[in-house]
């Protein structure tokens, strides 16, 4: 008996999953940051949600989740200019998202490549934003490294960049690793949500 088939990836369910995962990504970012501060860790750990959403639903949805987090977080913390750091989250979402779409987020090697790429991008983008918004010192752990580098004679921009490299390697390493783990264990019915060419293939 011939059964008829319907492919869900072309339907409206993607909207529904988006409506659930974007807030979830933001909430996971908040939880990560909260655990980090409860454990007094010197990292941000607030991009894990962005990486996870990007790995599941692709770069653009991940980016929306990341920027949403930065906007809400900066409002909650009182400094709305901090939402400019959303640019860093966009970079994270794009790198992880495009790799996931191209099916290049399966092995541990992939995860390591993602970590390095995301860390460098975040340091490159985060430094100038920190300088423009805060003048280089933002009131968190990374500033101590910046101070150290300043005392070696670096200008504020380079100091901000160099300080952020090791911090981001650790920070984004955890994020990418977590996203990779989740993607591996993703329930079957959520596997085809990354969007892009695969979902729009003609029947």
């Amino acid at each position: 008996m011939g059964m008829k088939t319907i492919d869900s990836s072309k339907g409206k369910m993607r909207n529904t999953y988006m409506a659930i995962l974007i807030p979830l990504g933001i909430a996971i970012n908040f939880v990560g940051g909260t655990i980090a501060s409860k454990l007094s860790l010197p990292l941000f750990l607030d991009s894990i949600g962005t990486a996870i959403v990007a790995a599941i639903m692709g770069p653009f949805v991940g980016a929306v989740s990341g920027v949403g987090f930065n906007i809400i977080s900066s409002i909650v913390n009182g400094n709305i200019l901090g939402s400019l750091f959303g640019i860093c989250n966009i970079a994270t979402a794009f790198i992880v998202g495009f790799m996931a779409r191209a099916d290049k987020f399966r092995t541990i090697v992939h995860a390591i490549i993602a970590t390095v790429a995301v860390a460098v991008a975040n340091a490159l983008l985060g430094a100038p934003i920190a300088v423009v918004v805060y003048g280089g010192i933002q009131g968190s752990g990374v500033d101590l490294l910046v101070a150290g580098l300043l005392s070696f004679g670096n200008d504020i921009l380079s100091a901000a960049f160099l300080a952020r490299l090791p911090i981001n390697l650790a920070d984004k390493g955890i994020a990418c690793f977590a996203a990779w783990l989740i993607l591996k264990r993703l329930p079957e019915n959520m596997r085809n949500l990354t969007g892009g060419k695969r979902a729009n293939a003609d029947a």
């Binding site: 008996m1 059964m3 008829k4 088939t5 319907i6 869900s8 339907g11 409206k12 369910m13």
Partner: peptide, 10 residues
């Protein structure tokens, strides 16, 4: 099922 979330049916 199957119309919104996909699948095969008869």
């Amino acid at each position: 099922l199957p119309f919104t979330m996909g699948g095969s049916w008869d």
